[in-house]
Amino acid sequence: MHRSTERRSAPRRVLRLAAIFSFLAGGSALADGVVGEHVNDLQAHLDEYTTEVNWLIEQVDGIVDAYEAGGLSAARPEAVNDHWEAVDFHSAIETNYVPLYAGIWQGLYGVRQAIEKEQPVDAVRAEQVKLEQTLWQALGAVKVAAQFQQRGLVPAVAHTEAATPMETIDIIKRELERVVAKYAEQLPDEANTIVQETYLNRFEGIEGMLIEQDADLVVDLELDFNVTLPKSMQDGASVDEVSGVVEAMHVKLDRARGLLEEAEANRADVF
């Protein structure tokens, strides 16, 4: 989610030269400047996302073509990351469906690493096909999310501070999804930092209340935050495995949310 201006600047120039994405330059941003406001109005940007997905596929195809024609030195496979960083579709899928977002990163690295390892062109093309399929699935997911958004079924994407323990749980779940995203981006240190900060700044604030409701659940989540999840990343687990740990944590966090909601409902008034 935290793409820096610096990381985006070079590919943006490429896009401007291509005169395809001139609309990107004028996009407004949220207060922290990391995700464009477009993610809160997906419907209005679906055509742009579709154009971006087509453009991405063309760029990757060009890289593979170059590899086929001239080998590794001609391909510049690392550019797949720059192209992906350059498009707004990146944050559209990242903020709506992390499993596919992670899948795109896996696909990008699949193509890149196949070229860097100088594998046969057929093997590279196979990775390219997987990436393209994931990109189209992701575009479909964003279209569905746009419909939900229009019906008011999803909250606006923004960095807010929680006003209730239940909102804190929601933020924790979102942060854990970012962990998977960063891990998929092959940024394990950043992913681990998010785990630690989420534990200390978020979970610590509610676990005192939660332990009054279900001490065993707190023990479980303590282990997940401090052992299971960090260790899975440290041990080099696959993205799917890390995603599985996070999904299991989501289930526990949903249970925690329910318990905290019940406790809040039963709490005596202040005055």
Binding site: A162, T164, M209
Partner: peptide, 18 residues
Amino acid sequence: GTGEGGLYENVLKAIEKR
């Protein structure tokens, strides 16, 4: 400054209600 799990919020809501 948050970190107490939301109980301060309950106090604030009660003050606002009153």
